[in-house]
Amino acid sequence: MSDSESLDEHRELISFRIADQEFCLDIMAVREIRGWAPATPLPHSPPYVRGVINLRGAVLPILDLKGRLGLGPCEPSARSVIIVVHIGSRLVGLLVDAVSEILAADQSAIQPTPNVGCDTVGRFVRGIIAQEGRMISWIALDDIMPSEQIADAA
C-alpha cells in the first residue's frame, strides 16, 4: 500500500482548518463528512476523545483533532464538522472547525516535516505542502487513536 502510494504522482487531499492552521488528509481515507451531533461521552478516556455517536447503526468514536494535535480543546458548534475516516479496519470521526477545499498535489510538492522539536508534530504530521503561499500540514492517521487502555491498570 505504502509502496504504491509513494509511486502516485498525483494526490488528492481534503483540507480543513483547526485553530489558525491548515491541515489536510488523503481523500482516499475519507468516507464521509457530516455535521456535528452531540456525542455520548466515554468514561476513562483521554480528553480529546469526545465520545461516540450513532452513524447509521454503527458506534462511531469521535476524536477532537484540535485536542489531539495539542492545540487546545475544541468547543464544537453547529458549524463544526465531523470527517469520517478509515483507520485500518476502524471507522473514526474527526472533529474539525470547518472543511475548506479539495486540493491536488504532486508527490514532489510534499516536503518533509521540518523538525521543530515537537513530539506531536513528528507523530502526526507526515509532511507539509506549500501551495499558493499557504502551508498545509498533511496529517498521518496511523497513530491518531489513543493507545489501548491496559485492562487491569491497578
Binding site: 452531540p38 456525542a39 455520548t40 466515554l42 468514561p43 476513562h44 478516556s45 465520545g51 461516540v52 455517536i53 450513532n54 447503526g57 454503527a58 458506534v59 462511531l60 468514536p61 476502524r90 471507522l91 473514526v92 487513536m145 489513543p146 489501548e148 487502555q149 485492562a151 491498570a153
Partner: peptide, 27 residues
Amino acid sequence: IKSLEANYQRVVGIAAATILGDGRVAL
C-alpha cells in the same frame, strides 16, 4: 448490542453500546 471495540477499543466499566429510540448512543 453494538460493539465498542469494532471502531474504538475496550473501555473499562463498559460492556458494549446500544442505540436508543432517540438515535443516541447509550453505553
